[in-house]
Design a protein around this nucleic acid. Structure first.
Length: 418
RNA sequence: GUGGCUGUGGUGAAGCGGUUAACACGUGCGACUGUGACUCGCAUAUUCGAGGGUUCGAUACCCUCCAGCCACCCCA
């Protein structure tokens, strides 16, 4: 193999591309129904943006970013996630000044330098949505309902919604302390990773898959019991709204997120069908992020969907795209007529294919079959002379005549369709 | 960054020291001189991820490298 794509960067070939289009179109439809508008932001930002938003000490910033110095000597980074860039744009264009509430969605590639595996790539794609400017738990519930609708519309019932609350800067430090002191006495029984986590991020111990650690952390205090009264009220309201709209969910007080900016409500859509990658969509509230980036103090909440992971779940479903008519020609003389007929039909909105290279009739018919054309027609000297031809419905071989004009063909198809 | 597994055509693969490198699918052409699907025929890897070594001989054994996959870490 002479030249290959960069490790972890994939080509999306035509069959899979149809699946992606289905995912993207469904997202657009559902999001726009909910009043969200698309925002397109660059795939590259100043490195500082991600350090300040995602958090300097997170794995993403510490070891997974595609960061380099451009020719002007500036440190730039290929976006590892979408929210930071959208918030930067919101602040830069003062979108909150025209309308205190912004409802935005985006889709596109993200980049993280990780070892690729099933459902995880160095260039991967996310579809995300954000609401800024609303403190009320109603916004949390709408975002969760919209995410749930997306999965319903896409035809996936398997992933389930898990929610949690991480508290706010008021109550989280106290919880961290309580968790640390509880785990301190049992640290000896934990796995090596968890011993490290104890120092770096004790919340992660709750998420460990090692049986011994699960056992040791079983009685650890729950975040939900340490929420301050306003965070507790907020979480209760979110649950109440979800109940009100009959949105199914479960509470997972051990759920941890990888980005520092999350506050209060966090959530994941999880599945057991993707090996070790269980999250197919995730998000949460980020009330401190915008001010942290130098904007006004306005709250936000949003999520991101992993497109590759959804495509994997959709893997067995077929999406097809086939022509309405295939025009076969007998000789070079008929190809001019076939070509202008095809051109007219295409302009009228019918999907038409014809032979490009003067192949044998047999080859042309095989191709019509292979493309799954609904109808075929053969144009030879007789057809040119009479101005009409016999059309064949490929599914059952039914033949009928029609004039070789755009109007004639349309009315034939119309007639045969009913 | 760490570990495990695997690299034979467009694809799925058999072969595991000497073969015309099996078989199947796909693709192309033809049987049918104006009609696809089913059937049949023919064609389709001078070569087995790359480089080196062992050997009279290596796709096969050994080493190195590269790539892919899966898992850990972490995450969508």
């Amino acid at each position: 193999m002479a030249l290959t794509a960069v490790k972890g960067f994939n080509d999306i070939l035509s069959d899979e591309s149809l699946r992606w289009q289905h995912i993207e179109q469904t997202a657009r439809r559902v999001f726009e129904l909910n009043g969200f508008g698309e925002i397109r932001v660059p795939v590259m930002e100043k490195t500082e943006l991600f350090c300040r938003s995602i958090g300097d000490a997170t794995d993403i910033v510490e070891k997974e970013m595609y960061t380099f110095t451009d020719k002007g000597g500036n440190s730039v980074t290929l976006r590892p996630e979408g929210t930071a860039g959208v918030m930067r744009a919101l602040i830069e264009h003062k979108l909150y000044a025209q309308d205190p509430v912004a409802k935005l969605y985006y889709m596109g590639p993200m980049f993280r330098y990780e070892r690729p595996q099933k459902g995880r790539y160095r260039q991967f794609h996310q579809i995300g949505a954000e609401i800024t400017g609303v403190n009320d738990p109603l916004a949390d519930a709408q975002v969760l309902n919209m995410l749930t609708s997306f999965f319903r519309e896409i035809g996936l019932s398997e992933p389930t919604l898990q929610i949690n609350s991480l508290g706010c800067p008021e109550c989280r430090p106290a919880y961290r302390t309580a968790l640390r002191s509880c785990l301190e006495e049992r640290i000896g029984g934990l796995c090596e990773d968890c011993k490290r986590r104890f120092a770096t991020n004790p919340l992660r111990i709750l998420d460990c898959k090692v049986p011994g650690c699960i056992e040791k952390s079983a009685g650890a205090p729950s975040v939900l019991e340490h929420l301050c009264s306003s965070c507790n009220d907020h979480f209760s309201s979110v649950k109440r709204y979800l109940d009100l709209s009959a949105t199914p969910y479960s509470i997972n007080s051990r759920m941890v997120r990888g980005l520092d900016y999350y506050t209060r409500t966090t959530f994941e859509m999880v599945t057991g069908l993707l090996g070790s990658q269980s999250a197919v969509a995730a998000g949460g509230r980020y009330d401190g992020l915008i001010s942290q980036l130098g904007g006004p103090s306005i709250p936000g909440i949003g999520f991101a969907i992993g497109v590759e992971r959804i495509a994997l779940l959709l893997g067995n479903q077929q999406f097809t795209s086939s022509p309405d008519l295939f025009i076969a020609t007998m000789g070079a003389g008929e190809r001019d007529i076939a070509f202008s007929l095809m051109d007219g039909l295409l302009k009228s909105g019918l999907r038409v294919e014809m032979d490009y290279e003067g192949k044998s009739l047999k080859s042309q018919m095989r191709r019509a079959d292979k493309l799954k054309a609904r109808y075929s027609v053969v144009i030879g000297e007789n057809e040119v002379a009479t101005g009409s031809a016999t059309f064949k419905r490929m599914a059952d071989g039914l033949q009928s005549d029609a004039a070789l004009t755009v109007a004639g063909i349309h009315s034939l198809i119309m007639k045969l369709e009913q």
